[in-house]
Amino acid sequence: MTINLDWENLGFNYMELPYRYEAHYKDGAWDEGGLVQGNQLSLNIGSPALHYGQSAFEGLKAYRTKSGAIQLFRPDQNAARLADSAAKLLMPAVAVDQFLDAVRQVVAANAEYVPPYGTGATLYLRPLLLGVGPNIGVAPAKEYLFTVFAMPVGAYYKGGMVPTKFMVAETFDRAAHFGTGQSKVGGNYAASLQAGKYAHEHGYGDAIYLDPIEHRYIEEVGSANFFGITKDGSKFVTPKSPSILPSITRRSLMTLAQTACGLEAEETRIPIDGLGDLSEAGACGTAAVITPIQSITYQGNVHQFGDGGIGPVTQKLYDTLVGIQNGDVEGPAGWIMTVQA
């Protein structure tokens, strides 16, 4: 079957594909699960996911290599992070083996929708875990639903690897310290909608959040993590905080900063008034990959990084990471899982 899509001009938009995976948890155990068709879920109106936000999700991608093979990038890390999010919301974890099997099945069944090599597009996968069943009280659900669906996507930020302007969300907080900020749960993203809308309306790619206590230290960039390169060219730095999501892309970049760029990688507090100590900055995540930060506007002042273009370290990190994901560069052991379509 030949899919007729404009692969090079895909946005980051929903598209229904023929197959998804679905499994159910009841009476203390997950069933075997399997592929299903259709994009509609049937939920009891009392489901805690609907009333109290007892839901978590993941995001990962499948890539087509030059030889036509299909591979996934560190899906075991997505499985582990979903388990962490589930524990935070008192949901039963999906076993790593079941998670990986579900992802493999969805990719293989929808293989014709994995974009061709060289188009810049990928197959985005969304695993979703929901607390369901008749339960109107504020308490964990007794039943759960796990589903994985997919769609081909292009760049998350318009233009892809293009320097982008960001602004600080001075009157908005994303998440509280020791709350659910470190988990990939729906409520964190609902809390980001106002600030994101304001940023977009004023010509920025997204809003940057500061810590919720002092409003002094950088935390996240919209739905992505922040990183910077120190002016002396010695360090890759990224925020350390109990209320930011531990990005798999960020974790991978920390490794590549050391192995491919010879830098020291450090998680540390990055003050918003210390931007002058950085020569480059970027937003990173599964959806965004890497978006170079051209400038940050804070309290009416615009701080531009370098000449406003893509810095050399950011470019090298991007080329190395994308090279591994697309099968052109050999990555560390265990980072790639192939899918037999």
Rank of each mutant, 00 (worst) to 15 (best):
A281D: 05
V96R: 03
D206C: 05
Y25V: 08
Y157I: 15
K158P: 09
I70G: 07
G334A: 08
G311A: 13
E143N: 11
S241N: 10
I70W: 03
T314C: 04
T119N: 13
D277T: 02
G282N: 13
D6M: 12
H51W: 07
R20T: 07
G203V: 06
S241D: 10
G181P: 05
N225F: 03
V221T: 04
K316N: 00
T147V: 15
Y144Q: 03
E280H: 03
R104L: 05
H24P: 05
E58F: 01
E220P: 04
L35H: 11
G327N: 13
V313A: 00
I3D: 06
I336M: 12
R250C: 09
V168Y: 08
E16G: 08
R74E: 02
W7E: 14
K197M: 11
I208Y: 06
N9M: 03
I324T: 01
D211Y: 09
Q98V: 00
G334K: 05
N39S: 15
L10P: 09
I270R: 08
H177K: 13
E330R: 08
I310L: 01
V36D: 13
V36P: 09
A155Y: 13
Y189T: 14
N188K: 14
G300Q: 12
N78E: 01
N326A: 04
L321R: 05
Y63T: 05
A265H: 07
K66P: 01
Y144D: 03
Y209W: 12
P116V: 00
L72K: 07
S55Q: 15
L130K: 14
Q77K: 06
N13Q: 06
V168S: 10
N78W: 03
P292S: 02
G334S: 06
D6R: 14
N225A: 02
